[in-house]
Structures are given as C-alpha cells and as structure tokens.
Simulated assay, not measured.
Amino acid sequence: MAHVFFRRNYVHVRELNLSEINYLESDPEHRPRASLNYTPVLDDDFLELLTTAFNNHPSASSMMAELNCTRIRFVGGLPRGFACFQALRREGKHADRYIYGHHESTRNKFGTDKTFKSLKQFVPHVFWIIVDQPLADNRPRGCLCKLCAEQNYRL
C-alpha cells in the first residue's frame, strides 16, 4: 500500500529533497576526528550515490511500493545535520564512505560516536526519514536501520 503522503500520486521517478524535511533531529556537531584525514563528499555527489544505493537496495521494491513510484531520485540537499566523508583504502583505488549526523550519535546511552559505515546501511534510515513523519492519528513504526535498532535494543 502506498504511504499516505504518496498514495494518490504515482510517478515513475519520484524526486525527493531531503533538506526540506524540517522535523528531523540530527547531530550536526558529530563529525570525524581530524586525525582520520577523511575528506568531505560534496552534497551533489553524495545525493547521486545515495540515489543509486536506494534504488538498488535489497528492500527497494517494498520501499518503492510505499513511495508509489518505480525509482527515487534525490535532489536538493542532504537531511539537515548529515554529512558524508570518505577515506581512501590503502591501495587508493576504493573510497569507503561514512555518513555522520545520526541523532543518537553521542546521546541516549550510545556513549560513542555512531556513523553509518556505508550507503547501504544508511538507506533504511533515509526511508524512515521520508515516511515516518509524525502523523496525527498514526503511530510511527520506528526506524529499522542498524543504529536505531541498536539503540532500541539498549533501552
């Protein structure tokens, strides 16, 4: 079933601007230590990578059904407070990407910084950001990403 916000509006490619979501709590102070020598990934490059990761995610078909589309294209900007950094592996041919800004990074019993260690790991959190907006008569289902699930387990 299509999510309530997208139910009547099927589109082949749904363009979403995550920076327009204003209810999200995030941690803009949570960034890599300087000693790690991570380099920032430009927002436009990150949105392109995120678009590919979202559309190719193992849960893509169920997410697309709820978003009432065939594909997603992220435009505009990242969710407020999030940033992507990369580090080249030793052989210098592949960059590992880390997404910073999770709202539970250093609070609520985590005690240590938490980052998404890949785009694939970040996708479920992005889906939650899109669809689990506070609704008047619905209880949100909660985020199923690894970091949120870990936090819920600790409570």
Score class of each variant (00 low, 15 high):
residue 97 R to C: 12
residue 39 T to E: 12
residue 125 H to W: 07
residue 82 F to Y: 13
residue 4 V to P: 12
residue 8 R to M: 09
residue 33 R to A: 10
residue 35 S to E: 14
residue 124 P to R: 00
residue 67 L to G: 04
residue 115 T to L: 05
residue 104 E to P: 07
residue 109 K to V: 12
residue 125 H to C: 07
residue 114 K to W: 12
residue 70 T to M: 09
residue 2 A to W: 03
residue 8 R to E: 10
residue 74 F to T: 05
residue 48 E to K: 06
residue 38 Y to Q: 14
residue 51 T to S: 06
residue 26 S to W: 04
residue 2 A to T: 03
residue 44 D to N: 04
residue 60 A to L: 02
residue 95 A to T: 13
residue 16 L to M: 11
residue 95 A to Q: 14
residue 5 F to E: 10
residue 131 V to K: 03
residue 92 G to D: 05
residue 62 S to P: 00
residue 77 G to S: 09
residue 143 C to D: 04
residue 28 P to L: 07
residue 23 Y to P: 02
residue 127 F to N: 00
residue 100 Y to G: 00
residue 137 D to W: 09
residue 87 A to Q: 08
residue 50 L to T: 06
residue 97 R to Y: 03
residue 149 A to F: 01
residue 38 Y to R: 13
residue 148 C to I: 05
residue 79 P to K: 02
residue 54 F to D: 01
residue 1 M to T: 14
residue 52 T to Y: 02
residue 133 Q to V: 01
residue 139 R to E: 03
residue 60 A to M: 08
residue 22 N to K: 15
residue 28 P to D: 08
residue 78 L to E: 03
residue 9 N to Q: 14
residue 27 D to V: 08
residue 12 H to T: 07
residue 127 F to M: 00
residue 104 E to S: 15
residue 11 V to L: 06
residue 125 H to E: 04
residue 25 E to N: 11
residue 117 K to W: 05
residue 80 R to T: 05
residue 115 T to W: 01
residue 27 D to E: 11
residue 154 R to H: 03
residue 48 E to P: 06
residue 51 T to K: 01
residue 33 R to L: 14
residue 127 F to I: 01
residue 42 L to D: 15
residue 122 F to I: 06
residue 93 K to D: 15
residue 106 T to R: 14
residue 55 N to A: 00
residue 80 R to L: 04
residue 148 C to F: 01
residue 43 D to G: 10
residue 99 I to N: 00
residue 32 P to K: 04
